[in-house]
Design a protein around this nucleic acid. Sequence first.
DNA 1: GTGAAAGCGCTAACAG
DNA 2: CTGTTAGCGCTTTCAC
Lengths: 332, 332
Amino acid sequence: MAKTVEQIANDLNLSVTTVRLVLSGKAEQYRISAKTQARINAHVESYGYILNHSARSLKLNKTDTLGLIVPNISNVFFATLAEKLELRCRRSGYQLMITCTYDDVEYENKLVKSLVARNVDGLFIVPATLENQQHHLRLVKKPVVLLDRDFSATTTPLVESHNYAGGEMLADCILNAGQLPLWFLVGDPQLPSIRERIEGYQNALKKHNVVANNWVLTGSGNSHDGGYLLMNQLLKDHGKPHAFIASSLPVLEGAIEALRQQFGFIPADINIATFDEHPMLGFLANNVWSMQQDEDRWAENAFELMQQALDDRPGCETIKVPMKPIIRKRHG
Amino acid sequence: MAKTVEQIANDLNLSVTTVRLVLSGKAEQYRISAKTQARINAHVESYGYILNHSARSLKLNKTDTLGLIVPNISNVFFATLAEKLELRCRRSGYQLMITCTYDDVEYENKLVKSLVARNVDGLFIVPATLENQQHHLRLVKKPVVLLDRDFSATTTPLVESHNYAGGEMLADCILNAGQLPLWFLVGDPQLPSIRERIEGYQNALKKHNVVANNWVLTGSGNSHDGGYLLMNQLLKDHGKPHAFIASSLPVLEGAIEALRQQFGFIPADINIATFDEHPMLGFLANNVWSMQQDEDRWAENAFELMQQALDDRPGCETIKVPMKPIIRKRHG
DNA sequence: GTGAAAGCGCTAACAG
DNA sequence: CTGTTAGCGCTTTCAC
């Protein structure tokens, strides 16, 4: 496996320029003789050639690589988003570097630094906090597109779901089914996306002329354990709920586990709503409403914003992607 | 933001060596004067410094980056594996580059090339086929660790689950519950891992003195749709099953959907077993046995093998990681 | 049609 | 304790 252009040139007694021109498909343009082309092609055929990106990017100061920083990738939403975004980037010749912070703010800062050091051409980031976000924007001189969390205080391009409308729509669906109170189990009330969902929910209540009395239960952490604790608290204080909304799938998982543990089974008459969609929601016997986020459109929009920034056509849009309700009706 | 070491050196009227030594923490070792150190640190404090990895890797011919190629990352197992592996790599100072093939063999080859061009120090690969695997091993001169699929015909290090034992154990569990026939819905019978699971299952039947009569149903594709078609075929040919095993979660999802569609609900008396674990399996009212793969140990072992190869202590082990059964008993 | 050479930012070896 | 220099493989510019 011949390595460098120079080696090929030496082997063939040609100059690097000549070899480069045919390797980069500009043979015709510079009218390299057919014989020379053939010699070079034959050599590559037998020894191979793989361009050295490190050298290229050192020279050109670009890597054709973009970075993605998400909290974690075992979360289906982020996993799907990462996948779609990788596909979209690749379609335009970029390799996407997917990394996770594991909800560690320190780690997140380090990741940004690591990716910048690796000379990525741009960065997609789901920031954990406003402070993190500002840290990144200060540090990174390359294009940045923020995802999922609008802490505002910035003119950086951003893509998120239309959380307010989503919250309202989801609450609306389940309110139409008529059971009250409608609890809202919230994993992480600090996040702007979650706050918007809560506001949407509250507006739906208002439109239905329902007076809520502290039906929003907030806990610590957008996780299985968070949901478990929230549901146990709910059971203890108010008994079996008739209807509830979970702020995310992990929270729902925990909540369901608490129910199972309390009753020995999952009471099928509880109306359940959740943000994010997963085929396994079909495993529940209950009425289930889920609010699906459209990762395809996220990816498309996020890449479009990145492309603009890379092309030096600034733009500082915030794009809100609509969510879509999925309905699973209980039997009978 | 001062950029290069050389710039800092110029600004401060020092030489690059001096600056480098303090930047790389070797100030004490080379007894750089406290004053010089202070000047340099102050400069970095105010203007910042981020090492240029492209230049470093061009010089050292290493990138401190490892590549991971999996079929897709929206599959929980691979997502979790990727996450654990990223953590493990990072713990030893490597950045992991996670990429997906989307089950496209051409794409897989391109990815290998792309990562090699980007000069990764080593590659973790879940190969789609034997041909792919051999293609990669021929092309890649860097260390490779194979994952999940033992097409054999190689002496390359490999990590997989102990699929035979897992298949046997899972079948054993559900056979103890006593309902026959015990169907096996298989998404992708070509894969060596799946074949081993089938063999384990068959051995369990033998040990239970059960004579099976074509209870293994194979379809096309390890996917939701694959499972859906398999279950519909089963329903058509043999009516409602009493017990079945799904070869993976996507297959199970499809199978459950078919059941729901047929009966309007999921008959809770069907005994269900599946490979791979997910908290949402707890949403089912049925008896559910799942076989959990231990991603932590996968990550640990895979990195260990990689480390060995990077250190030039070859080794050509195949490591089989045990699986663990999770049992969810139906109420009452 | 082909060649020669500079330089991207870093590291390592050697020189004082 | 600090400075100088060559060179990693590529691209670009200019020269013949």
